[in-house]
Design a protein around this nucleic acid. Structure first.
Lengths: 204, 204
DNA sequence: TGTACATCAGTGAACGCGCGTTCACTGATGTAC
DNA sequence: TGTACATCAGTGAACGCGCGTTCACTGATGTAC
């Protein structure tokens, strides 16, 4: 108010509401998310979100879409900083996967919940955005696994193996302050992945 | 009312409320759980649960405890029907793990959520029951992994590997009607586990 | 440059809803004698 | 076996709360001329 003119128009309220929602989730879990709380956190009246989202499920979808974008960014960032060799790339992608799960635990879990939009359906464009963003995330992992696909067609693709392993690790062991499992200290995922003994079919 | 005398005392309302809660969760997800709905489903006034549970979080804890009991039972049942060889036993335990995730998807996911009991703490006995039941479930998997622990101490235990793999598979692919992943049909877990090429250190 | 006007993104009051919780109560159960 | 009584597990009304949603409104923005 003093340092910044109070505009009637917020400027980018939609973005502010999504950001507020991400923060609320991280602080209080998925149940802490409500339109009213997001509005309050964005410094706006509780009726304002109605101009940007078609109800709570629409905001949730936008938050999840944003989650997938950050998820993809986390994996890409890790890959960019790694050696170009397939093994190093896959390692990095997994590290980015885990990093995101650790730094955005609540949203990460929420992204993989079957969102109980019972009967309540998203509008087509929101649904498409969501599908696009989630597929983009998955595609990153998929691409990183491709060099390890065997041609001996045993029926189980590398990506199913790796995805299950990294996702299980993320779900079980990536609570914010977690360093202990029931059976002792949690190893880094970079120690776990080599156990799959993946072999690239690309000749060096 | 006609075929059964209407008792003032329910008989076993606590159990009935837990069962009702499990059903509500499976049908509508974790958000569908409320004390009032459980009471209604158990055929009792909405104030009755207060005599058996110290608020909603207490009922949730009881539901999760019940979930772990069923989870353990599912794994044990599968193990009992399998060959005694370590490989067959571990296979069966994993199958029981997956079976439970498929048949109790909502409760399964709820069990592994960090329950946002922010500041709100369970009474000691409920917390102990919960810890005991969850540890019992984990111990089953742990025992099944024990014959495969290597002595070469590479720092990553078999149980961390197997647990991550089976849990990730369960979380990603065990929605009730799910048979497709983004990359095609989902293989059975029994096809996946052998890829770990676990070796028992017990001589036959 | 100035004016008229449509559009848009906010406000704040009001609504009904389901929720957890409390409260005085009531009727069944179990026990002492 | 019968009676008195404490205990316990229900009932139904009532409360306040946060929620999503609607509504008439208002003030800023952008455009036509």
């Amino acid at each position: 108010m003093t340092e910044q003119k109070r505009h009637h128009h917020h400027g980018n309220l939609r973005e502010a509401l999504i950001t507020a929602g991400l923060e609320l989730m991280e602080q209080g879990g998925p149940d802490a998310l409500s339109l009213r709380k997001c509005a309050k956190r964005a410094g706006v009246s509780h009726a304002a979100p109605a101009h940007h989202f078609n109800g709570l499920v629409s905001l949730q979808a936008a938050i999840i879409a944003r989650g997938y974008q950050k998820f993809s960014a986390s994996m890409r960032r890790a890959a960019d900083q790694a050696d170009a060799a397939p093994q190093a790339q896959l390692n990095a992608i997994c590290a980015g996967y885990i990093d995101f799960a650790r730094s955005h635990t609540a949203v990460f879990k929420f992204m993989f919940q079957p969102h109980n939009n019972d009967s309540q359906t998203l509008d087509a464009t929101t649904q498409e955005e969501l599908d696009r963003d989630s597929m983009a995330s998955y595609q990153i992992l998929r691409d990183a696994c491709a060099p390890f696909e065997h041609n001996d067609a045993q029926g189980v693709s590398t990506e199913i193996m790796v995805w299950s392993l990294v996702h299980g690790y993320a779900m079980l062991f990536c609570a914010p302050g977690k360093t202990e499992s029931p059976s002792g200290p949690i190893p880094e995922f970079s120690q776990i992945l080599p156990k799959l003994k993946l072999k690239t079919n690309i000749t060096p």
